[in-house]
C-alpha cells in the first residue's frame, strides 16, 4: 500500500484489527539508504531554497549592485555536467555488469569533480584580488557564501565517491556496488541541478525583475 492510502486505514474496525492488515514487505536493506538520501536531499533543498530567497529578497532593494560574473564559472559548470554524465555512465555500466565501465565512469567523474573544485577555488582567488572585491557588497558576500556551501555539499559527495571507488579498485563486483553507485549518481544529479539554479541566479545581474515581481518580492 502506498503511504497515503495507508493513512485512510481504520485500525479500530473488527475486520481491520486482525492479521488482515499485516503489511507484507520484504525490503532490501538498500531501500534504507535510498529513503535516507531522499530526506537528506530534501533538507539540502530547503537550505539552498532559503539562500535563493534571501538572495532574491536582497536583489529587490534599491541599492543592489550586481556582482561580477567570472567567466571561469562557465567552464566549471561544464565540468560539473561532465562529472554527472560520467557517473551516469558508471551507473549504467554497473547495471549491465561491466566493471571496466564502472571504473572508467567513476574515474572520469572524480577527475571532472576535481576540475570543478579547482576551478571554483581559482574563481574565488581571482575575485578576491580583482578590483571588484568589497566585503560589504552583498552580491559579493552572497557569491562566496552560496558557492562555498555548494562546494561543502559537493565535498560530502566526494566522501561517498571515495568509499565506492576504494571498493571498486579493491576488487568488488558490480552487484556489490550497484546500489551505492545509483545513490551517488542521484546525489550528483541533484548537485548539478542545484548548481544550475544557483549559477543562473548569480549570473542574472538585473534581469530577474519580472520573476521578482511575480513572486511579489519587488
Amino acid at each position: 500500500m502506498s503511504f497515503f492510502s495507508e493513512l485512510t486505514a481504520k485500525p479500530w474496525l473488527p475486520e481491520q484489527a486482525t492479521a488482515g492488515g499485516l503489511n507484507v514487505r520484504a525490503l532490501p536493506p538498500m531501500n534504507v539508504g535510498r529513503t535516507a538520501l531522499k530526506f537528506f536531499l530534501g533538507v539540502a533543498s530547503v537550505l539552498f531554497f532559503m539562500l535563493i530567497v534571501a538572495y532574491a529578497g536582497r536583489m529587490a532593494f534599491e541599492d543592489w549592485r550586481p556582482g561580477p560574473t567570472p567567466w571561469l564559472l562557465w567552464q566549471n559548470t561544464i565540468m560539473l555536467i561532465l562529472s554527472s554524465m560520467a557517473l551516469q555512465w558508471a551507473h549504467y555500466s554497473a547495471t549491465s555488469g561491466d566493471i571496466n565501465g564502472v571504473r572508467v565512469g567513476l574515474f572520469a567523474a572524480g577527475a571532472f569533480t576535481f576540475g570543478f573544485l579547482t576551478g571554483q577555488v581559482i574563481a574565488w582567488q581571482q575575485l578576491g584580488t580583482s578590483g571588484y572585491f568589497e566585503a560589504t557588497n552583498p552580491a559579493i558576500a552572497f557569491f562566496y557564501m552560496i558557492t562555498g556551501l555548494h562546494v561543502l555539499h559537493l565535498a560530502g559527495g566526494v566522501v561517498g565517491w571515495t568509499a565506492i571507488s576504494s571498493k571498486v579498485w579493491s576488487g568488488a563486483r558490480t552487484a556489490e556496488v550497484r546500489e551505492s553507485i545509483a545513490l551517488c549518481t542521484i546525489y550528483w544529479h541533484f548537485l548539478l541541478v542545484v548548481w544550475l539554479v544557483l549559477f543562473a541566479l548569480l549570473f542574472s545581474s538585473d534581469n530577474l525583475d519580472v520573476l521578482l515581481a511575480i513572486c511579489g518580492i519587488k
Partner: peptide
C-alpha cells in the same frame, strides 16, 4: 534522518502506519 527512516523502513511485520 535516523528517526524518519527507521519509522518508514524498519517497522516490524503488521505494524502498518495506522
Amino acid at each position: 534522518l535516523n528517526y524518519v527512516v527507521t519509522i518508514l523502513q524498519a517497522r516490524t511485520r503488521g505494524m502498518t502506519l495506522m
